[in-house]
């Protein structure tokens, strides 16, 4: 039990340090908000609309499919460089690998993921 007391003390000290820093910053910093200061930082341009915009759900699936081919490229480049040494076995392996990924793409295509509407 006493070993866990140390953990508890660590948690309290850790949280206390954060709270103390916030408190210290609060009493130290000047407080002077005005509309020009509170505007969102958009590289010195005035922001258009709210920053809490909604991304379309499909965007994430697109990103996911992109990641598949990203990883494929990462494996393809070293494979292509070392192709002279590794021979036929590596070719077959890579074809199987690409076919598996291709199957994933065809599945997504069939499901209508690639239609943006």
């Amino acid at each position: 039990m006493s070993e866990y007391l140390a953990v508890l003390i660590f948690i309290f000290v850790g949280a206390g340090m954060v709270l103390f820093t916030f408190f210290l910053a609060r009493i130290l910093r000047p407080h002077n908000p005005y509309p020009e200061k509170n505007v969102n930082y958009e590289c010195a341009e005035l922001p258009i609309g709210n920053s809490w915009i909604k991304f379309h759900n499909r965007y994430y699936i697109f990103a996911l499919i992109f990641v598949i081919f990203d990883v494929e490229a990462v494996f393809l480049f070293p494979w292509a460089v070392a192709f002279g040494q590794v021979g036929l076995y590596a070719l077959v392996e890579m074809v199987i690998f690409i076919l598996i990924l291709l199957f994933g793409l065809l599945y997504a295509w069939k499901k209508g993921v690639l239609k943006w509407a």
Binding site: R29, P30, N32, Y34, E36, A44, E45, L46
Partner: peptide, 13 residues
């Protein structure tokens, strides 16, 4: 005006 906006967006001092 962009410079002014950046200056405005900084915290004092």
């Amino acid at each position: 005006p962009r410079l002014r906006r950046l200056y405005d967006q900084m915290a004092e001092p």
